[in-house]
Nucleic acid binder design. Structure first.
Lengths: 294, 294
DNA sequence: GTTGGTCATAGACATGGTCTATAGCTCCTG
DNA sequence: CAGGAGCTATAGACCATGTCTATGACCAAC
């Protein structure tokens, strides 16, 4: 007798043993009593063992039935726990959302959405992994995050990118350069001042380098830094003119510790995208988050 | 979405996750790949969640799939352990056999069969519960033993009794009564001697009382004892003539410390029966044992 | 005896699980 | 770059089998 039972039979067995009645088991399973009777018989035949004593009040486990029950009970409990867990995941009562991106984007863009998301789905654990754009892409490909928030453009056939926020980068300076506060500068004249840029491998740096090149100039920074906070701090202290995302310095602009330098040409805005693996299904939490950001 | 999944789907899920391939899972389950693909889809639809990433090398669990797997894996392991256990019970590699009866019957009749049984099925644990016939019947009805070995006749509609051994009871005496060693006594003349009988409620006692009554006599013991060992011991010491099962004193008869008193009428043999609950299925071990005794 | 509860059995029916055939995709190789 | 060899997904047909209804047999209680 090969052990090739329909596992469905164990569900029937479980309820029959649990309720001590084929009739009750049938009700619990929304079946008829003969179906349950038949199912139990199938199981008994497949083992070549009798699992229940039948009497006029219902059924009772035999010695062998009890042994089977001790295993099947555990098994069924695990399954129903699993089903509850799945339902919870579906309802976003449960689960985790892992996002990758840069610290400054998190701080200025993602945070309000995260707050909203967390408020709506307090059961979902949030994991934020910061890194540079290439690092975030690696995280995604390695499956360590569900989605990445990075500056566009991203060209990678494995990734799907949804454009979301628009960012406006600009040049800012502090009190030391007060003389140009109300002037409108050309790109060329800007090059006379000491410029502070983000490190070479960043998207923002590549973008501004390209803009100057398009106009025939080459921008070379006096200082290179690795974080937006330093970009801001150096500008405030008058070490130079920083190229920074306007939205990241809104506080400083407001309080007047920095001012934006007006240029005679418009600087094209850049975009932030939410990227995910192409052709890979998203977790419920991830797709809900993306929906929310839209 | 009601959680009314076919548990069979979990088996498919388990193998798909375990092998990382729908094709492999299909082979393991003796199904075709489309069937497995369909089954997984059903499961995913029922949860409203994606369980696997599909790629060109096979499938891989998603976050949610992994959570499901952690439960289902345990569950499936329990089930297959249970199936192995059932097969072992069927093969009598495993299990227990609980027998009730009197010590003397065990010693002289059941023991050789128990030895044989134990040799053939060393995995079966043996439990011997000794007691009087009514106690053994109670044990049976309470489900504390699988079968009882008692003296016939038993009249109880709930019980099924299989006649098995034949016992010959007889009167024995020791050296003190050497005078009658080679005589043939009548029942009446026997009554002149002091008789030692088993206690009033025993089957053997009832049987001999009845025999004498049928011949118009009344047998009244000088001494009443509660164990076969005492019956033998008292006879050896010459305290009287004991009525005892011949097979229980075969050693003493052989060595000559006791001799059997010959009578002018035959004493009817009594029988030992194996009793079980009527209409209750036997464990594999119990039915195998009964078969062996036959 | 009758009623109301159990489980078992028989036979009909239709659901749905499984199949074959095929398409689409990715990766690897000559 | 074309072709092959993996993989999974889809469509549609079929029939096995799980489920039903109807009924029987049994037991306990009133």
């Amino acid at each position: 007798m090969s052990m090739t039972n329909n596992y469905e039979l164990y569900k029937v067995f479980y309820w029959a043993a649990k309720t001590g009645s084929l009739t009750q088991a049938a009700k619990a399973l929304y079946l008829t009593q003969p179906s349950v009777s038949h199912a139990i018989k199938q199981l008994e035949d497949s083992f070549g063992l009798i699992l229940f004593y039948r009497n006029s009040k219902g059924v009772e486990l035999t010695q062998e039935g009890s042994i089977l029950y001790s295993y099947i009970e555990q098994s069924q409990i695990l399954i129903s726990t699993a089903e509850e867990k799945m339902a919870a995941l579906k309802n976003l009562d449960n689960g985790e959302l892992r996002i990758g991106g840069s610290d400054s984007l998190f701080k200025h863009y993602v945070l309000p959405y995260l707050e909203e998301f967390h408020e709506k789905h307090p059961g979902i654990k949030l994991h934020l992994n910061h890194g540079t754009t290439p690092e975030v892409i690696t995280f995604l490909k390695e499956g360590r995050i569900d989605l990445g928030v990075v500056r566009m453009p991203i060209v990678d056939s494995q990734l799907e990118v949804r454009e979301s926020f628009k960012l406006q980068d600009c040049f800012v300076a502090g009190a030391r350069f007060a003389e140009i506060k109300n002037k409108v500068l050309s790109l060329e004249s800007l090059l006379q001042y000491p410029v502070i840029l983000f490190s070479r491998n960043s998207r923002a740096r590549m973008a501004i380098t390209e803009i100057f090149q398009n106009y025939g100039y080459t921008i070379k920074p006096e200082i290179e830094v690795g974080s937006v906070d330093l970009l801001i701090e150096f500008a405030r202290r008058g070490l130079g003119i920083s190229y920074v995302t306007r939205e990241f310095v809104s506080k400083e602009l407001e309080e007047g510790s920095l001012f934006e330098i007006r240029l005679d040409v418009p600087l094209p805005p850049s975009h932030v995208g939410i990227m995910t693996m192409r052709n890979m299904p998203l977790t419920s939490a991830a797709s809900r988050f993306i929906e929310l950001v839209r």
